[in-house]
């Protein structure tokens, strides 16, 4: 599974961090960091993370 976050669109809401903490986190400055190729077992969490993004900036490329 490949995760792409459009960082031009991301506004650091951090909702993805709660849905999928293994893949997404916020730095101390509040900026988003993420794992680009997470394990397949995390798919449902990553789908939830994409759903809860207020900017819809997260795409899962199979």
């Amino acid at each position: 599974m490949k995760v792409v976050v459009d960082m031009d669109v991301c506004q650091d809401h951090g909702q993805c961090v709660f849905a999928s903490p293994e893949v997404f986190r916020l730095s101390d400055e509040g900026r988003l960091l993420y794992v680009a190729e997470p394990d397949e077992s995390l798919r449902e969490d990553v789908e939830d993370a994409a759903d809860v993004c207020p900017l819809q900036a997260i795409t899962i490329e199979d």
């Binding site: 650091d12 951090g14 709660f18 916020l26 730095s27 101390d28 400055e29 509040g30």
Partner: peptide, 13 residues
């Protein structure tokens, strides 16, 4: 405010 204080709010989640 800005991104840093928003991240602080998230820390209370």
């Amino acid at each position: 405010g800005g991104a840093a204080v928003v991240a602080r709010a998230a820390a209370y989640r």
